[in-house]
Design a protein around this nucleic acid. Structure first.
Length: 758
DNA sequence: ATGATACATCTTTTT
DNA sequence: GATGTATCAT
């Protein structure tokens, strides 16, 4: 016990040892948040206040769930398996599997990732003859997801105009089709669980009385539904220990609601609000910069980081003439750092958007510096892996149309668009899945489809008693996927990835049977398959998910959820000693001795899409705050006068955030140009004089080229005749809104689209 | 069924 | 500039 609590500062100690009531911990960057969270759990268990299986700890990423589990097993001599530690989605999946019947789901329901969801929606629109110009799949997907994230079913969404009424109707149709196919999207996992527990009192009470302590990490990132979910789980008895930092809320764009923090404070009658403001990471000037910047946000719970580490070095700022020069300068400077003894892997280069990495990579490559880029494609996202997974999905749940469509003709087996069309018609007519509709297709198309079905059935029969890894191996063969890639010239890597899937399955099975995403599974379940709850008749025997799961979820089902919920490491190749490149978002939670933040320009950071609303700017500011607080000792910020973006040169202004930093903590490595640009019109044209004669000449040239004006009639090869309604941008950047009558309004890039004046 | 061409799009991202 | 997707020709 002494051991557990030693080395905690007074605030941390207070947080860890709080009484069993709900509490809100405002944990600043680098203040030991994860440590407090895990120590709290260890302390609760060690002092006998709770048994391991009374603990529910929720995180957002698999990574942090794993880390928490790892730290806990280092702290405690006990088995961590009884605890429920996982992501919102992982935990919901577990509950829904165990209680699938009560949740109204088939035992083998499958999870759509965002890619699957998008193609699902595209198919849905096509099948119902909906114009996808009027109802873009992405828009519909966003509509559905944000409704679900708020906990709303189609019937509960307010529709105030025709467009929205149609969207709502499509949402309803979407849910219906999901149900038909036995698939759920990510948001559905949460919403289903929420509805299940709201509606089913015995089940709800069972879990409410089991989980007396609920701990939530990154609370500022919760969305409305997650918050409601937590409220429901907690009931009136549980103590919710929420840890978060409102200043690091950078996911509002995907539904996170910082407001949940103050709502939590009120609704959970939080008496204990503890601020962790002692920062163990960054030197003084860096923290001063971070504190001063975030001061400019109006919506804050209020918190200021402090450090004992001394002022340290000034924050260095560099202005480059171009993005290429900026990158070269960063490479040069990184080289100097390494020469001065910095560890390569302790130097990070952060940027706002992925598009910026290319130029930097190029410069690093030329400078002969090793680097690794975070955020690439993930293992389970690779096309060949998705194909193999689709075969497995079909064997487990043949009604998954997404899986069906993915592989029905891959590798090609003569089932073309026509055959598919017939099949889709039949499926629609009878309201059944594509797989089930196969017998209704006649002729040649029918027989090739039937042999595909035979392939799947055969594979299922052949592998039904095989262990998972062997099952995967058989599927790779039987599907002829391996064969197909063997005859392809670029196929070797793909084959390796496919073979890797067998390894992944082996690994998955080895790790406690189903892998860590699943509950403790020790031997066969002591009870019959977990069908249990009936509304009404008492007494009701509840079989807890821990007991029900092993009988309800096959290794294959478990592996498939694992593949969807944990798409694999996108953290690139591990371990290498190399410079770290990533977006600011990806850097959250990490720290480095030296940090470069590049591209600090208006329009990029803050991003132009965010600057329309004040809340958008505030989120960008928090993002900047996250970026700054990644640095321990040395911090660089760079910006550039010109930058290639979307293939065009853009003239950018220095980011407004520079004006929000304390001058005393900064060191301008290039002379600070006095532009006073806030007083000027914000057009690139007006800034041209600063950019030198060359730029002016360029500007004038493109200006004289512009033959397009509002009202001009034009002709387009595909859209026919139209009229220019509006022009945005200028010079070679110009894009025009053109009304093409029955083809509707189009936004075309004037330097790309082929238009004739008429 | 495959390859070529046209064109739209282009923030961030986990599950 | 690079990428993905839709459409058309082969």
């Amino acid at each position: 016990m002494q051991n557990l609590l030693h080395n905690l500062n007074p605030e941390q100690l207070a947080a860890v040892t709080l009484p069993a009531q709900s509490a809100l911990i405002l944990a600043g960057a680098g203040s030991g948040k994860t440590r407090v969270l895990t120590t709290r759990i260890a302390w609760l268990i060690q002092t006998g206040q709770i048994s391991p299986n009374g603990v529910l700890a929720v995180t957002f990423t698999n990574k942090s769930a794993k880390e928490m589990l790892m730290r806990l097993s280092a702290m405690l001599p006990i088995n961590t398996r009884g605890m429920w530690i996982g992501t919102f989605h992982g935990l919901c999946n577990r509950l829904l599997r165990a209680h699938h019947r009560d949740a109204g789901l088939p035992q083998t329901f499958q999870i759509l990732d965002s890619g699957d969801q998008l193609s699902f929606i595209k198919r849905l629109l096509k099948a119902n003859n909906i114009d996808d110009e009027k109802f873009p799949p992405k828009t519909l997907m966003y509509f559905i997801n944000s409704a679900k994230d708020q906990g709303l079913r189609a019937a509960q969404v307010d529709a105030y105009d025709d467009f929205n009424r149609k969207m709502v109707a499509l949402y309803d149709l979407y849910d219906l089709q999901c149900q038909r196919e036995g698939v759920v999207d990510f948001a559905e996992l949460l919403l289903r669980t929420y509805e299940l527990l709201s509606r089913n009192q015995p089940l709800r009470e069972h879990y409410q009385s089991r989980f007396k302590h609920i701990l939530v990490d990154e609370f500022q990132d919760t969305n409305d539904l997650q918050y409601k979910w937590l409220k429901l789980m907690a009931g009136t008895q549980a103590a919710v220990f929420a840890v978060g930092d409102d200043d690091q809320s950078i996911y509002a764009f995907r539904g996170a609601n910082v407001g949940n923090m103050s709502a939590f404070e009120k609704e959970f009658q939080v008496e204990n609000l503890i601020k962790l403001e002692q920062n163990y990471r960054s030197h003084g000037h860096i923290l001063d910069a971070a504190n001063a910047l975030i001061e400019h946000n109006s919506q804050r719970l209020g918190k200021n980081l402090r450090t004992d580490a001394g002022h340290g070095e000034l924050v260095r700022i560099f202005e480059a003439s171009s993005d290429i020069q900026e990158a070269q300068w960063i490479a040069e400077e990184a080289k100097n750092l390494i020469r001065d003894g910095y560890d390569q892997s302790q130097i990070a280069i952060l940027y706002r958007s992925n598009a910026q990495s290319r130029v930097i990579e190029h410069a690093l490559f030329s400078a002969n510096l090793p680097y690794r880029v975070y955020g690439g494609q993930r293992y389970f996202d690779r096309a060949e892996v998705k194909h193999a997974i689709a075969y497995l999905q079909l064997m487990d749940n043949p009604h998954n149309d997404s899986a069906f469509m993915r592989v029905v003709n891959f590798p090609t087996r003569g089932i073309g668009a026509r055959s598919i069309e017939q099949l889709q018609d039949a499926a629609k007519q009878y309201g059944i899945s594509l797989y089930a509709a196969v017998p209704y297709v006649s002729g040649k198309a029918g027989s090739s489809l039937a042999s595909f079905v035979k392939l799947i059935e055969g594979a299922r029969f052949e592998t039904q008693h095989l262990p998972l890894p062997e099952m995967v191996q058989v599927v790779l063969d039987v599907s002829t996927l391996l064969n197909h890639y063997q005859s392809e010239k670029e196929g070797t890597e793909r084959i390796e990835n496919l073979e890797q899937l067998v390894n992944a399955a082996t690994l998955f099975v080895a790790e406690e049977g189903f892998g860590h995403d699943a509950p403790a599974l020790h031997g066969p379940a002591s009870r019959p398959a977990g069908q249990l709850i009936t509304n009404g008749a008492a007494p009701i025997e509840i079989i807890d998910a821990d007991a029900a799961l092993p009988t309800v979820m096959s290794p294959l089902s478990a592996f498939l959820s694992h593949a969807s919920l944990e798409a694999g490491d996108n953290q690139a190749q591990v371990g290498q000693d190399a410079l770290q490149l990533m977006t600011v978002h990806a850097a959250k939670g990490l720290e480095f001795d030296a940090v470069f933040i590049g591209g600090l320009e208006e329009g990029l950071f803050p991003h132009e899409n965010s600057t329309q609303e004040e809340s958008g700017v505030e989120e960008e500011r928090r993002l900047m705050y996250v970026a700054i607080t990644r640095a321990r000792q040395r911090l660089y910020m760079t910006f550039s006068q010109t930058r290639m973006l979307h293939g065009q040169t853009r003239y950018n202004l220095r980011s407004r955030f520079f004006d929000e930093l304390p001058e005393a903590s900064l060191k301008w490595l290039s002379p600070k140009i006095q532009t006073n640009w806030f007083a000027r019109p914000k057009s690139a044209w007006d800034d041209a004089p600063e950019l030198g004669a060359n730029a002016i000449a360029q500007s004038l040239q493109s200006q004289s080229q512009s033959v397009w004006r509002i009202g001009q009639n034009v002709a387009h090869a595909k859209f026919g005749e139209g009229v220019i309604v509006n022009i945005e941008g200028s010079g070679s950047n110009a894009r025009a809104h053109i009304n093409f009558g029955k083809f509707g309004m189009k936004l075309l890039d004037l330097s790309i689209a082929k238009l004739d004046r008429i």
